[in-house]
Amino acid sequence: MTKQDVINQVSERTGLDSLTSRSIIESFFEVVKESLTEGEPIYIRTFGSFILKRRAPKVGRNINQNTAVTIAAHVVPSFKPSRDFTDQVRAQGITVETKK
């Protein structure tokens, strides 16, 4: 599903025109990005949390040059689904195809 598909479904379900739905969804994304950029997590009950996760420094390898590369500590955005959301998805019994 693409962002346009989401916009179309929101538009159908709310009865709003496509441009208004697009504006609302784009605004939501901007709020999430701005909040996480400022270090503030977002908690949405029954849906999930947008949080920041800290990654520790580590040593990686550049296999082309066969050298060790130090990867500095950094922060990455993450989404953690709520228990209700996870249980709802599990109840559907959907299987996901894995790449080999």
Rank of each mutant, 00 (worst) to 15 (best):
V32R: 00
E97Y: 08
L19W: 05
T98D: 00
K33A: 03
D87A: 12
F79H: 04
G60K: 03
V31S: 09
P77R: 07
Q9N: 08
I71N: 13
S49H: 07
P57E: 11
Q88H: 12
E26H: 01
V96I: 15
G15V: 13
Q9C: 07
K3E: 06
D17S: 04
R83G: 05
K33Y: 05
Q65S: 14
I42F: 04
S21G: 07
R54L: 06
T20M: 03
R90V: 05
A68I: 00
R55P: 13
D5W: 06
K53L: 07
V89I: 09
I25H: 01
A73E: 14
A68P: 00
V96N: 03
R83M: 02
D17G: 11
F47K: 01
E38Q: 15
V75I: 04
T86K: 15
Y43D: 08
G48S: 03
P81T: 04
G39I: 13
S18Q: 15
S27Y: 01
F29V: 00
T70E: 15
T86Q: 11
K3S: 05
P77T: 09
V59C: 00
T20K: 13
G39K: 03
E97A: 14
Q4A: 13
F85C: 14
F28Q: 01
E97T: 14
T14D: 05
S27K: 01
E97D: 01
E30Y: 01
N64S: 14
T46W: 00
L52A: 06
R61N: 12
F28P: 00
I25N: 04
P41V: 10
V10H: 01
A91V: 08
R45N: 00
D17E: 09
T70W: 00
R45H: 12
E26N: 12
E12M: 10
I42N: 03
G93A: 07
N8Y: 05
N66M: 02
L16D: 05
Q9G: 06
S49P: 07
E26C: 01
T46F: 06
T20D: 03
R90N: 15
G93K: 07
P81A: 10
R90C: 06
N8C: 03
I25A: 06
G93V: 09
S27I: 00
N64M: 11
R54C: 01
D17R: 08
P57M: 03
I94L: 15
I7C: 02
F47P: 10
V59L: 06
T37Q: 14
T67L: 08
F50L: 10
Q9R: 14
M1V: 11
K99M: 00
T14L: 08
A72T: 06
I24F: 10
T98R: 08
E26Q: 07
K99T: 12
T46D: 15
I63V: 12
I42D: 02
Q88T: 09
K58G: 05
L16F: 12
A72F: 04
I7H: 04
V76E: 09
F29I: 01
V32H: 01
T98K: 06
D5A: 15
T70I: 12
A72G: 07
R61T: 12
A73Q: 08
S23C: 03
L16M: 14
T37I: 11
